[in-house]
Amino acid sequence: MDSYKLKAAFCHPKYWLAWLGILALFLTSLLPYGAILFLGRTMGRIASVFVKKRGHIARRNIELCFPALSPKEIDHKVRLNFENSGIALLEMGMAWFWPSWRVRNLVQVRDVQHVEKAIINGQGIIFLGAHFLTLEMGARALGLTQPCNAVYRKHNNAVLDFWFYWGRMREHKAMLDRKDFKAMLRVLKNADALWYAPDHDYGKHKSSVFAPFFEVENANTVAGTSTLARVKNSCVIPVFLKRLPGTEGYELVFYPALENFPSKDVEADTKATNLQIEKMVLECDDQYMWMHKRFKTRPEGEKSFY
């Protein structure tokens, strides 16, 4: 915790741009929600003109996952993804600075009974998440509904890392480094809850396997969900936050706990978690993080998709 305190070193000129960004997020968080949405979409459209590389990555990912789509349909999805990315940037200010009552007023909760059942049974809960553009607001909404421990990756910029940590800790119990697997296991052994997202490609390592994701047969995927779920009396409950149309706000969606999970086959388990994430993505595919290289790691001898 000592590393997540404001420090005099944060005043160094190399952090001034980061501080300007934080100030901008705070000021925009004071706007009405409808104005934030409009500004975010506008920013996303403008960004699409300048960050062509990200647009190319998003387009390629969508092509790979949905090969039946026409070029026009793909262009439309990429445009929506940029708009939602602009909103996601401003949502960080909402997630970090809004009072709890204002967040609650915009969030509907769907099927929370799956969580309540696990708590009554005294189970450790693995909240199976995914990298949606609503990630920051999702962390706040989940914390207001069911505070838990969350897995995260440190940001390279110390000032931004402080604010990401501080913002996510407003409602949650602890933030665990994604490499601290022992801490994750302790959480579950204590019948507590852990948020875990296995859908980023972190390269080849002993805890990843190739499993299908939509129409991509071999998507490098972290297999940790299967390992974590082997803790006695644990369950896996998928959850994500969906941004609703217009100014309706958000829906925090819980799915039923995965059945017959884990099995004795880690690859089969990873396939099952990817299939579950597919279902979540299909509810709002324009809000998924298509702009990162989800399929950058390929099997030996297979050329890059990008």
Rank of each mutant, 00 (worst) to 15 (best):
K173N: 03
I237A: 08
A8N: 12
R140K: 09
H76K: 12
E215G: 04
L31A: 10
L176R: 01
N190H: 06
K5E: 10
K204R: 10
I125N: 10
C65V: 09
D269W: 12
E278G: 05
T28F: 05
M1R: 11
V231Q: 03
A158V: 04
E302W: 08
V103M: 12
V78A: 04
L89K: 00
W166I: 06
F10S: 13
M43K: 07
H114Q: 09
S234P: 03
A211D: 11
K53D: 12
V266W: 13
V253K: 14
A118I: 14
T221L: 06
N233I: 08
L25P: 01
M175D: 01
Y255F: 15
D75Q: 14
G122I: 13
R153M: 09
G44W: 00
R230T: 15
R59H: 06
Q123M: 08
L258S: 14
V112S: 11
R140S: 10
T247C: 14
F162I: 03
G301K: 08
M1Q: 15
H12T: 14
E259C: 04
P299W: 01
W19F: 13
I237E: 02
S85D: 01
T273N: 08
A191C: 04
D286T: 03
P262H: 03
S100R: 05
S208Q: 12
E73F: 14
L244M: 09
A95F: 01
S208W: 05
L89E: 01
Y255H: 14
V209C: 09
P245R: 11
M137K: 03
P198D: 12
P262D: 01
M280Q: 12
W166Q: 04
F213E: 11
R60W: 04
T227S: 08
G21R: 00
G301Q: 05
S304L: 06
T247M: 15
F26K: 03
L128W: 14
G122F: 05
Y196D: 02
L160G: 00
D180S: 02
I57W: 00
F162W: 05
M175K: 04
Q113F: 03
A68K: 14
C11G: 14
